[in-house]
Nucleic acid binder design. Structure first.
Lengths: 253, 253
DNA sequence: TAATACAATTCCGAAAACAGGAAAACCGCC
DNA sequence: GGCGGTTTTCCTGTTTTCGGAATTGTATTA
């Protein structure tokens, strides 16, 4: 504890708070002015924060913004009930358009966690009730997130063995890498009988502030019926809803 | 950097992430097991995190959960636009009852930021349009938040010089501390010609999950007209609306 | 192109914080 | 009251931090 009653830790936090409060990225000098810290000090502290992904530096700029790891941590403070007002309206609209169950999934460690589900009138099959954890390699909403994580994250995920749920589940490393590539190029993740038998679902990433993919939307239906809807229709509608959610989560600055 | 490639900072973050990933609170022993840390080490690290509100201990339990400071950080990254529908409804009701402009302000670093404004029919004077930043010492909604922050926060705020806007603006440290005390005891913040000339406004805190004051409601009107409304009437109505908003923001679990 | 101003970075010794073994205190449970 | 485990205190060698001074980098202007 130094003269001002601060621990090293609390100064780190103050820097994060300062950056969070700013509308745009902040330079080292700006941070230093706000917190009354000398240039070398800010430089070192911000460097340490950046090294572990708590802060990030805007590409080709000197400005710092919050890092992916911090965003993840922050969003994990939201409880399941917190999402209702943020996102229910947007999901409801999707349900009305597609006639299938829609859910919002959140990246939580190495799994996708359903945080909100909206069902069409009359449906009673709970495909992905809030709280359910979905594997990143075998659920559409999971793939939609995994496909946009850092290479490092994907490597770590693939380093551990993955569960097989149906005969269609893709578990091989190369198989999954190819699948993720497909998600990135086509703009939509598909899960056809890979997790729950007889179920077809689509997933689309949702970006938060900083461009990180921390959420995804999933649409799930019985394969026999849902297959009738063209993939491109699903992609377009998911994409639109994702854009709205991104705005909600502060992705658009 | 120690043998395992960890800095002190990264161990703090690991602890936070471990706690975040757990569905329930974690005890020191559980954290230690997951991260392979000895008991005294976890004890000290968790203690430091708790000291600055990054971790919190469940009342009457040994389990640790994420602290409110992380929530504060999160809220400051949430999108400004489209603050929930219900919030708008609540503010609209206040406008109808009081006949004056109402806004919702959010604590953002060392300023209050208007994130939502609702005006009475026919009014065209934009007192506090969304995006406007209000000083914590010279706006009613600002005072309403400042009065309920930690002593540490207030000390840091008062350490820097404050701007004077009118001859009524209170800028002295003691003057402001007394004013904050008045807000706490009376339950309402008043700003009479202190920021904008000829304008009178009232502010009331809004608590989020964990009891932290991160938002406030402000009512603003021309002093000549608005002074006719008894303060107690304003306080009661603001208090009611604040309770509804608290529920909206997840203060009630 | 040189001159200027300021931001970012590197260096480094003194000072402070951290690490974790040992041991004591505390707790819930027979 | 005794027992097994968890939490807390104590303490010293080790590591990290702090920030002044000096250096390099980078726009902007003359």
């Amino acid at each position: 504890m130094n003269a001002r009653g601060e621990t090293p830790l609390s100064r780190y936090v103050q820097i994060l708070e300062t950056v969070a409060a700013a509308r745009t990225g902040l330079t080292l000098t700006e941070i230093g002015q706000q917190l009354d810290l000398r240039a070398p000090t800010v430089h070192r502290l911000a460097g340490s924060l950046k090294a572990i992904d708590l802060l990030a530096q805007i590409e080709g700029s000197k400005s710092y913004v919050l890092g992916r790891r911090l965003q993840l941590l922050l969003h994990s403070t939201l409880s399941l009930t917190d999402y209702s007002h943020l996102a229910k309206v947007i999901l409801r609209e999707l349900v009305d358009e597609l006639g299938e169950t829609v859910h919002l999934a959140r990246l939580n460690g190495a799994v996708a966690e359903s945080v909100l589900m909206v069902q069409p009138e009359g449906s009673n099959r709970a495909f992905v009730q809030p709280g359910r954890e979905l594997p990143l390699h075998a659920a559409a909403s999971g793939k939609a997130m995994l496909a946009f994580q850092s290479a490092d994250f994907v490597d770590r995920y693939l380093a551990k063995p993955r569960a097989r749920f149906t005969e269609n589940t893709k578990v091989g490393k190369d198989e999954i890498r190819a699948e993720l590539e497909r998600v990135r190029t086509s703009g939509i993740a598909v899960c056809d009988n890979e997790l729950d038998a007889g179920v077809l679902s689509y997933g689309h990433p949702v970006r938060v502030k900083g461009g990180y993919v921390l959420y995804s939307i999933g649409v799930t239906g019985l394969a026999d019926r849902f297959r009738a809807t063209p993939t491109e229709v699903v992609r377009a509608k998911l994409s639109h809803a994702a854009a709205l959610l991104s705005k909600e989560f502060g992705s658009v600055e």
